[in-house]
Design a protein around this nucleic acid. Sequence first.
DNA 1: GGGTATGCATATGTCCAATATATGAATCTT
DNA 2: AAGATTCATATATTGGACATATGCATACCC
Lengths: 304, 304
Amino acid sequence: MELRHLRYFVAVAEELHFTRAAQKLGLGQPPLSQQIQALERELGTPLFRRLPRGVALTEAGRCFLDDARSILASVERATEQARRVAAGNLGRLRVGMINSAPFHPFVPRVIREFGQRYPEVALSIDENSTPALAAAVLAQQADIAFVRPLLGDSSGLTTEHLFDEDMLVALPQGHPLARFRTLSLWALASENFVLFPRLVGSGLYDEIIAACQRSGFSPRVTQEASQVTSIVNLVAAGLGVSLVPASMQQVNSEGVTYRAIAGDGPRARMSLIYREGEDSPTVANLVALARERVGRPRARKPKG
Amino acid sequence: MELRHLRYFVAVAEELHFTRAAQKLGLGQPPLSQQIQALERELGTPLFRRLPRGVALTEAGRCFLDDARSILASVERATEQARRVAAGNLGRLRVGMINSAPFHPFVPRVIREFGQRYPEVALSIDENSTPALAAAVLAQQADIAFVRPLLGDSSGLTTEHLFDEDMLVALPQGHPLARFRTLSLWALASENFVLFPRLVGSGLYDEIIAACQRSGFSPRVTQEASQVTSIVNLVAAGLGVSLVPASMQQVNSEGVTYRAIAGDGPRARMSLIYREGEDSPTVANLVALARERVGRPRARKPKG
DNA sequence: GGGTATGCATATGTCCAATATATGAATCTT
DNA sequence: AAGATTCATATATTGGACATATGCATACCC
C-alpha cells in the first residue's frame, strides 16, 4: 500500500464517482479503477459498491475513509513539523551558563530575545561551572553554554567568543582601600583573597593569578567559593577581597565596594560553546542571534 | 511522498547505516540512497548527517522518525480495522424489534449469541411497531428488525421469515371461558376484544380478523393498545379478551389466563427485514445466525 | 421497447520511475 | 600509503502506473 492509494481512495469516496474523481486527480478513469481495485485486493474487501450510477461506500469503506483521511493529515503534519524543526522554529534547546552569566545584561537579553523569536522552542537553562558545562555539552546533556575560558581539553567543542569584560576589585565595605576610586593590583598584594577553587578553575582563575603576577605578587588565597555570588558574599562578610567581573556590581552591593583596576587588569571573557559539527538549528539560531547582538549591541551599558 | 519513503526512512533510521538497511529492505544501497534523497528534497531538509562510518539523525530526522513510525502504525491499524469491519467483527448494528419479540425466547437468544460471537460490534436495540421499524430500516435509522408481517409496500426491503408461532386466547382471570382447556374462536364471538389499532396494524391484526371471520364472526374491538404488553394489561384489567402470541404467556400472567385455540387459529409470524442489497457484514452475520438457529433450534421450548 | 447515455471494467500499449549494476569519492584504519 | 568502509553518482533495466481504446451493464428517453 502506498499513500497514492489512500489519496485516490479519499478522492473517490468524496466524489462517489470514479470518472469525476479521476478528473479531480488529474488522471484517467481506468488507472484510478485499477488502483482502487489493487487497494481492495490488498485489504481483502471491497471499499465501494458499484452502482449503475456512481458508487457507494461499503461499511469497510466508511471505516477506512476515516483512517485514510487521518493518515493523510498526519503526513501533512509530519512534513510541516519536520520543516519547522529544521528551521529551528520548533524543538528544544538546553542552555548552560556559568553562574556569573545571568548578571551580565547581554546573556539574559539574548535568551529573552531567543524566546520571543522562537516561541515554540522549549528552552531549559542550567547554571554550573565552566568545566561542568563543557562536560554536559559533550555528554549531550546540554546543547550550548555560556562559559568563561576553558582550560585543558576542548576537543569536540566549538567556541564562539562573545566579549571581554573588565574586572573590578571587590572590597568589604569600609575597607581602607575603598577611599581610592581606582586601585592598582599591587595595592592588593598583602590582602587575603577569595577566589574559585583551583579545580573549578575556569580560565578566569588563571587570568586573575596572571594579572597579579604581572603586578609583581602572587595573591594569597584564604577562602574559596565555586560561585561568584558566594565570592561576593564572602567579601561582604569581610573575609577577604576579590576580583570579579564588572557586571557583578549590579547585584548584592550591600557590604561590598567595587573599585576599578588601574593598568592592564584581568579581563573576563564570555564565550559560547557547543558540540563540534553540531547541526541543531536551534543551536545555530542561538549562536547567530548572539553573534548578531555582539556585533551591534543595542544597550548603552558598557560591555566589559 | 509515498509510504515507501517512510518505510525506507525508518529502516535507515533504525540501522543508521544505508547498506545494512538496504539489505534488510531487500534492495540495493543506491536506490535506497536515492529515495532518502528524494524524501529530504521534498521536506527541504536533510534527515541524516552522513558520517564517515554510517549516518546519524538530524534534529528534523528525529522528529520525523516519530511521526513516520506513527503513520506506518496507523496504516497497519487502519488495514486491520477495515478487514475486521468487512468480516463483521467490528462495527455496529442497530436492531429494531417489534414489542412482542423480546418475549419469544428465540429473539433474545439470537441477540445474546450475536453479542458473544461479535463482542466488538456495538449493538443498539429499538422497540417499535412493525411499520415504524420498516420505515426506520428504510431511512437508515436501523439496520435490521424483527417484525411481524408487513402489510403494504415492502419495496426496498428484504424479508427473511424466521418462524410462525401459535396464538393463544388471553382471558381475564376468572372469566367463564377459562374453565375450558382449549377454546374455539367461535366461543369468543360475543366478547369484547382488545387489539392493536388498525393503523399500527402489522399483519398480525389482519391475521386475527381473518381467523375470526373463518370462524364465522367479526370481533368487536372495544379497546386498543399499540403494544402487546399493554394489551395484556388491559385484558388483566378485565376490559376484554384478546389473541396474543403464545410466547406472551411467560410474562405478566397474574390477572390473565391463557387458553389454546382449537382448530386453525391465527399464527404470529416473526421475520427479519433489512435493506435490499444491504452489504453490511454485521447485518449478514445476524441474518446468518438467525437462519442457523431457526434451522436447528437448540432449546426444548416450542417455537410457535 | 429500442436507442442513447452514463459509468465502471477490461485490454493493450507506453513511458516514467524505482531498482540493479558499476564506479567514484571521502574517510578511517593499519 | 595502501586497503577497507560507506555513501554518492552514473548508466542500464524493468516493473508498474498511466493513457487510449473498447466492452458491458444499467438507466433514461422518446
